[in-house]
Design a protein around this nucleic acid. Structure first.
Lengths: 345, 345
DNA sequence: AATAGCACTCTCGCGTTGAGAGTGCTAACT
DNA sequence: AGTTAGCACTCTCAACGCGAGAGTGCTATT
């Protein structure tokens, strides 16, 4: 791919910025009128032709202005990655909201999703922090009715797993508490494999619970991510590109099947570093449903202990300039929160 | 309002049924051709004129067929309320799905929402069972880090309240467990007011926890309903009436602000009996966002112990004939499940 | 009371047309 | 050589007109 001259670079960024704002193909004349450029429209036309030739722009039809291609957006985003800090005042507002909220993962996730959706005018996704290798911390068993028992399983890192068990026979709350207490003494800090490798318990109830705990921990580990929080779904319907086609419906459907969404998040962020952003433009050939969309994703958390993903989905014409720094900033915030909560345990 | 003749009644129902299927104004000729009626189109025209006069039908424009008015839909629904059973086979399928799922409230709610959305092709809403007067059952305190403690509070009826507390000073897990155990012995089966009325505890930690428990129970009671589950959001976008207008967005927004949605559910079902259906057509003048929509709602559960709401939102042109019996049936199922889970405690 | 016939109304789809926007190319200019 | 003015050309889009079709209400008839 040929190099861009400085002027082409400036023009390309200008054109994309304008298109993101106006949602309309931008022509040479409009460009001259709206921005202070010391060039005539004819010169700009030449440059536009060149940029089109190089694959950064395209024309919806012969006599329309130019529109960015996926390649164009990619260039735009790459230029933006390095710089683009969120204004101090916005940073302060967001931090403030987090610090005055309850110190509760659920609250944080909801808040993060809400902030992202609001700032970016897109659909936000946030997954709860999740440990790849969960370590046992504590179990509580609460008799509910008959043979049914509520098991609350807490992992190191604070991940909570709640589940109803059905035992072979009815057991008193007292015996349950004793059993839980015995297991807590035994398992503290162990990973699932270590627990499974322990010799069988002589007490039948203890052994049953142990088996169920191992199952629950395995299941938690298999889930590739924590619970998914989302917000701003209605934002996407305001976008003109989704107004009448059923593009919007396809993208929305992705959000209803949480398994697909999880797959997407995992596959695209699994190798990315904490703090590193990833921007998927037009589904990158992999995601048919997202051909018209872009996603800005980031991982947060403490590697090895608990990590999660957060991001924003919007039309390809998304407000990257605002979304990217916001996602980056919120990811940093959540990382700090996870860090503060876990470290020292 | 004048009485309808038997023939007018038949015709009105037929017209509405046809319109619900086809989504197009239905004319006299179409009616004669598609259904075996021993009448000429001219006669039908006369009757249609009468029905229009009476306010059950209306014409989008002079030379179009008839479309039901809100009044028309109301009549249609009222006719359907008494009869309309779900086919045995469908009942069986749904029951089966419930009985083979995990005995877990979260699972049930998700499943109920999924079934409702799928059957009705609308957006479903299900709220978790919730007790107006929560009774204490059990508390567990799990130290997480420093002064932070995870409190798991279980109510009679199985409602679980999970919360992070920040204590005045760091406390060992052992002391927490002891405190929890003392309180459990003391509070079992009591309502929040009874607990608040108890004399202060001599132990400072016990007293702190007690206060926090009362707060948590009050907060739970103040929430007018349990957690909200929803499904089928993308269905609503397929409906032609929402294709391009922004009606859809307004209705969707209702679902994003869970507070508004809760308000709606509470206000419309607060006085309705378990098992009784309520159908809101066109927002009934109260809900501007729902002017084009209908909602079928039902309460389920065991009055006085734990109740919840479930329902379906769709266009006014919704498939009532399928939705109403489904909502009624699922409500019955959930009532049974709640009953089985709670009774005997 | 029910129906056949008829004149009337209104929407919708379709082809036409003219204005406007934007382009690419060429020739002139710096 | 790079830049610019001018111009012919292309294409979309909104407006318009028009005819077909659907549906109605009314009247006269059975």
């Amino acid at each position: 791919m040929p190099e861009l001259t400085e002027r082409q670079k400036t023009l390309l960024l200008l054109i994309i910025r304008d298109y993101i704002e106006s949602a309309q193909p931008v022509g040479s004349k409009r460009l001259v009128e709206h921005y202070r450029i010391n060039l005539s429209s004819a010169t700009i036309r030449n440059e536009m032709a060149a940029l089109t030739e190089m694959g950064y722009l395209r024309q919806p039809h012969t006599s329309a202005g130019r529109v960015p291609t996926e390649e164009g957006y990619r260039y735009f985003v790459s230029q933006m990655m390095n710089q683009a800090e969120l204004p101090e005042s916005v940073q302060a507002t967001i931090s403030h909201q987090f610090h005055q909220s309850q110190p509760d993962v659920d609250q944080w996730m909801t808040l993060a999703a809400s902030i992202l959706a609001h700032q970016s005018q897109g659909v936000s996704v946030v997954t709860a922090p999740h440990a790849d290798k969960a370590k046992y911390k504590h179990v509580e068993l609460i008799s509910t009715q008959g043979r049914q028992v509520l098991m609350v399983l807490v992992m190191v890192g604070g991940e909570v797993n709640q589940q109803i068990l059905t035992l072979a026979e009815s057991v008193s709350q007292e015996r349950l508490s004793q059993s839980a207490s015995r297991l807590n003494g035994l398992f503290a800090g162990l990973a699932v494999d270590a627990i499974a490798a322990l010799p069988a318990r002589s007490d039948a109830l203890d052994q049953d619970i142990l088996t169920l705990i191992v199952q629950a921990m395995r299941r938690t580990a298999d889930r590739a991510s924590g619970e998914i929080y989302t917000d701003g779904l209605s934002n996407v319907l305001s976008e003109p590109e989704f107004a009448e086609s059923d593009e919007a419906r396809r993208a929305l459907r992705l959000f209803e099947k949480s398994s697909t969404l999880q797959d997407l998040l995992v596959r695209t962020t699994t190798n990315s570093n904490i703090g590193g952003l990833q921007v998927l433009i037009g589904g990158e050939g992999e995601w048919e449903e997202l051909r018209q969309c872009s996603i800005v994703l980031a991982r947060y958390g403490v590697p090895g202990l608990a990590t999660g993903t957060l991001g924003v989905l919007g039309p390809m014409r998304m407000a990257y300039a605002k979304t990217i720094p916001t996602v980056r900033f919120v990811a940093g915030l959540l990382s700090d929160l996870v860090n503060d909560t876990i470290v020292g345990e």
